[in-house]
Amino acid sequence: MKRHLLSAADLDRDDALLVLDTATELATVSSRAVRKLPTLRGRTVVNLFFEDSTRTRISFEAAAKRLSADVINFTAKGSSLSKGESLKDTALTLEAMGADAVVVRHGASGAPYRLANAGWISGSVVNAGDGTHEHPTQALLDAYTMRRHLSEGRGDLADRRVTIVGDVLHSRVARSNVLLLATLGAEVTLVAPPTLLPVGVEDWPCEISYELDPALAKADAVMMLRVQAERMNAAFFPSAREYSRRYGLDAHRMALLPDHAIVMHPGPMNRGMEIAADVADSVRSVIVEQVSNGVNVRMAVLYLLLGGAQLPTGEEVAA
């Protein structure tokens, strides 16, 4: 493993499998009655959130606490960040506080790279979502979820077919997923109107389709991306209704999926836009499970980056 997790591309196949296997092991441990491991006791993990994302912050916070790390939350609301304190000044403050890992969420693509590489801090940096760039721990939890349902919870995702649908252009989830799924051997198809695909997407390690239906029949997993209705104001598509009709997943379309296929969504969902309510709540949907898997995967990432002394063997402490 590299010292930072900034992009899903930072993980080669062995690294990715190590994270997933470690997450599997940690899941076993933390499903027991006592859910706290001493592994990162005395280490400090800072959640640095320049963007509001309660769900991701809580997930990282739970992960760090279950490993007994000290957790400091820096969020835009209620801190100096909202008054325009610079990324650099914030980083220097965190360094002075002795942060061993900084989990950063930022609206600007590449902000975690600056934190990791500008010489401001010495700890590990975990990208918890940067602009329209990447969200590698989301990709890891998605892969973990797919592996549980499609590969009996072990090994890679070789030959599994994953269809990712929606606003790829603005999606950090899509970028990280395409990279990680390719590393794990899956066949990925991106489905979107041409306006919501980045220039150069034809060079990505995946297939491209402008039509959803043909991509559903062969999918083992379909992942619906959040699409903001306001995108229509910038002419990415004519109307929410047209988008939904052409690219939304409703019950009718879901019926095109093979019986074993799962439905995923990174959240938060726009019910009625990219995903119909009855699909989101159907038995095929693993959307709620994605959330709980997120904690295990983030525990694994923090554990591996901070070099926890030994693999947790189930040695438990009183919480």
């Binding site: 590449g110 940067d130 602009g131 760039h133 220039v199 150069g200 990505w204």
Partner: peptide
């Protein structure tokens, strides 16, 4: 716009300047 629009801007998630 943040950088040249092309394959790299798509990968880096930076808005392109075509």
């Amino acid at each position: 716009a943040q950088m040249n629009e092309g394959a790299l801007s798509g990968v880096l998630g930076l808005r392109g300047w075509p």
